[in-house]
């Protein structure tokens, strides 16, 4: 296991170096820069002086070498969008996304797996068909539209939930601990619901398919022959084997912690990583975009590493190999 982790860490360093380099050059090749402000009233010579202050007037290779040097020394640059150092910006927005997406993934996996099992247990019954139809319907909805509908329904037509932000921007700090916690939960409900609905539907469909593939196996037939209760056959014997694809799915979903919530963050003004990255691309905030891409790549590497480890734990055959 240690060897696996060491090899993966070495791979991670190579991947991060390549990702940083590619992101740096791709971004700089795109038209515009942080000082191509929308405001046309800012004269070009003023823009040029601003570029010079940040070194954007130097040859691209020189900028690259300087950037990599500063990254190596732990300085990721200054965010033109958020007006703070990039490390501070990432430290602020990353936990917000982790909170939202972490909760969404945990709840979605819990619900999705249960739903998949439920549909298999009641296979070919009307309720299983109905459940399957509903999950297919939700899965096929455009995510942006679903989020917008939730917002309109519960923040405008039935104004029972806040329409955006992480907390009430005015009152939150004047609330007692209980009220403040409830305020946070209220602001979480809509974005979380939007994410959970879509991800749960996806996982339920994967889980159902995986279970259906496992059920005709010999060990299931043997368990049935031994008179094991059908509930135990599905819930204990088949489910454990059918969870392997879910581990892969979880490994892939981990990086989505960063980018997957962009639409939800945008609609519900959740000031997290996805939204910040999109805005940073829009204003060509080079340092923030490159740093965000690197963090995203790191999440992919970590997600895959965790999936490999979990795979080994779940399947003894993989461990032996």
């Amino acid at each position: 296991m240690r060897r696996l982790v060491a090899v993966r860490l070495f791979h991670a360093v190579v991947v991060l170096f390549l990702v940083t380099t590619i992101a740096f050059f791709l971004l700089h090749f795109a038209p515009g820069d942080p000082f191509s402000f929308e405001n046309p009233n800012i004269p070009g010579d003023v823009r040029d002086r601003m570029r010079a202050e940040f070194g954007y007037d130097r040859p691209l290779m020189e900028q690259y070498v300087r950037y990599m040097g500063s990254v190596a020394s732990g300085n990721l640059g200054f965010s033109h969008l958020l007006r703070v150092p990039v490390t501070q910006a990432l430290g602020t927005v990353l936990p917000r996304t982790l909170l939202l997406m972490g909760l969404a993934l945990v709840i979605s996996f819990a619900l999705g797996i249960r739903l998949g099992v439920y549909e298999v247990r009641h296979w070919q019954k009307r309720r299983a068909r109905a459940s399957n139809g509903i999950s297919l319907f939700i899965y096929s909805l455009p995510d942006f539209w679903l989020a917008l509908m939730l917002l309109l329904t519960f923040a405008y037509w039935l104004p029972i939930l806040p329409g955006g932000g992480m907390v009430d921007v005015v009152m939150h700090e004047y609330m007692g601990p209980g009220q403040a916690a409830w305020d946070r939960i209220k602001h979480l409900i809509l974005p979380l619901t939007a994410l959970v609905l879509i991800v749960t539907a996806l996982i339920a469909r994967y889980q159902r398919a995986a279970l259906l593939e496992v059920l005709p196996s010999d060990f299931v037939r043997t368990a049935r022959a031994k008179g094991v209760d059908e509930r135990d056959i599905i819930g204990r014997h088949a489910l454990r084997n059918a969870l392997l694809p879910m581990i892969t799915l979880a490994g892939l979903a981990f990086p989505a912690l960063l980018g997957g919530a962009v639409f939800v963050e945008k609609v519900f003004s959740w000031p997290g990583m996805g939204l910040t990255l999109i805005s940073a691309i829009g204003v060509r905030d080079y340092p923030l975009v490159v740093a965000s891409v690197v963090v995203g790549a790191a999440m992919v590497v970590i997600g895959n590493l965790l999936a490999d480890i979990a795979y080994g734990l779940a399947d003894p055959r993989v461990r032996v190999r």
Binding site: A30, P31, G32, D33, S36, E38, P40, G282, R284
Partner: peptide
């Protein structure tokens, strides 16, 4: 895109 627009405008 607006940034490319401003670039070409200038």
């Amino acid at each position: 895109d607006i940034r490319a627009y401003v670039d070409r405008l200038q």
